[in-house]
């Protein structure tokens, strides 16, 4: 317990927040860096993966690819990917930027599968009858995607981005090993100095950061759930009471996809 009190004292010590301190301080700069790396990587990954996921979900083409790809990526060791990219990028980019470029590429690669699966699973989860009704009243395919499929699949799309964000926050910590900034730098310097307060303080900071960002995205996910859509139904009751009915099967399918989106790195 004493360790935690010491860490909390370290976290609340104003000296650790003084601007211009020796790296890895001040703390607020590392928090800002961590958030910045996370934001940039998730944004790039979303720009790449979301349109692809939506396309695959809408057309049904390339479904096998998403399944194989996300499955295989789950087994990719993040540390190995980071180190390999660092060496590959390091041979072309100046050393000072190598860590940043390699880390962002690695983080983008790691964020893509969840976002892709989220976009794909989201569009897939939309009731085909709803899509057909759109088609019947003369909507173009683009209108169907933008006005029916995307709004209805927003919760799953955000679930994918949420899973990706968590993974990026966690992997950014590891990227301190290739001398990227962020909160990992605090932990790394703590390990180097055998400074327990710093190790624990840094670890607590990252955990709190992850919980806060995740909570924020969870709220966003809830807000975008349209009342009455299949995703808003209480799962438990549905599956139990009408285990043979079509509703129950549909709900279960959605749940499995949700789960499919997440995987821990």
């Amino acid at each position: 317990m004493q360790f935690f009190l010491d860490a909390l004292r370290w976290l609340t010590d104003p000296a650790n927040y003084v601007a211009g301190s020796v790296s890895p301080l001040p703390i607020q700069d590392r928090v800002a860096e961590h958030l910045w790396y996370t934001f940039v990587s998730v944004l790039i990954a979303t720009l790449i993966a979301l349109p692809l996921g939506l396309f695959i979900g809408h057309t049904g083409r390339g479904r096998q690819f998403v399944i194989g790809f996300t499955g295989a990526m789950r087994a990719l060791p993040t540390l190995g990917l980071l180190m390999a990219l660092f060496l590959i990028v390091g041979s072309t980019v100046p050393f000072t930027q190598a860590a940043f470029v390699a880390s962002i590429i690695a983080l983008v690669i790691l964020a893509i599968p969840s976002i892709l699966a989220g976009g794909y699973a989201g569009v897939e989860s939309v009731d085909p009858q709803t899509v057909d009704s759109g088609r019947a009243i003369g909507m173009t395919e683009m209108q169907i995607l933008l006005r029916i499929e995307i709004p209805l699949s927003l919760p799953l799309i955000i679930a994918g981005i949420r899973a990706a964000t968590l993974q990026v926050i966690a992997t950014t910590v590891i990227a301190s090993y290739i001398s990227l900034g962020g909160l990992g730098a605090i932990i790394a310097s703590g390990i180097g100095l055998y400074d327990n307060e710093r190790i624990l303080g840094g670890a607590i900071l990252v955990t709190v950061l992850a919980l806060v960002v995740d909570g924020f995205l969870a709220i966003l996910q809830r807000l975008t759930t349209i009342r009455g859509s299949s995703q808003a139904l209480p799962k438990k009751q549905n599956v139990r009471r009408r285990s043979h009915g079509s509703t129950a099967v549909a709900v279960k399918a959605v749940d499995e996809r949700k789960e499919y989106v997440q995987s821990k790195k």
Binding site: F4, A170, I187, L200, I204, V206, A210, K265
Partner: peptide, 16 residues
């Protein structure tokens, strides 16, 4: 919540 804790921090918190 457990799932949210990043891996390296957990590795270094657990010894305590």
């Amino acid at each position: 919540i457990l799932y949210t804790i990043p891996s390296l921090p957990l590795f270094v918190i657990l010894p305590y």
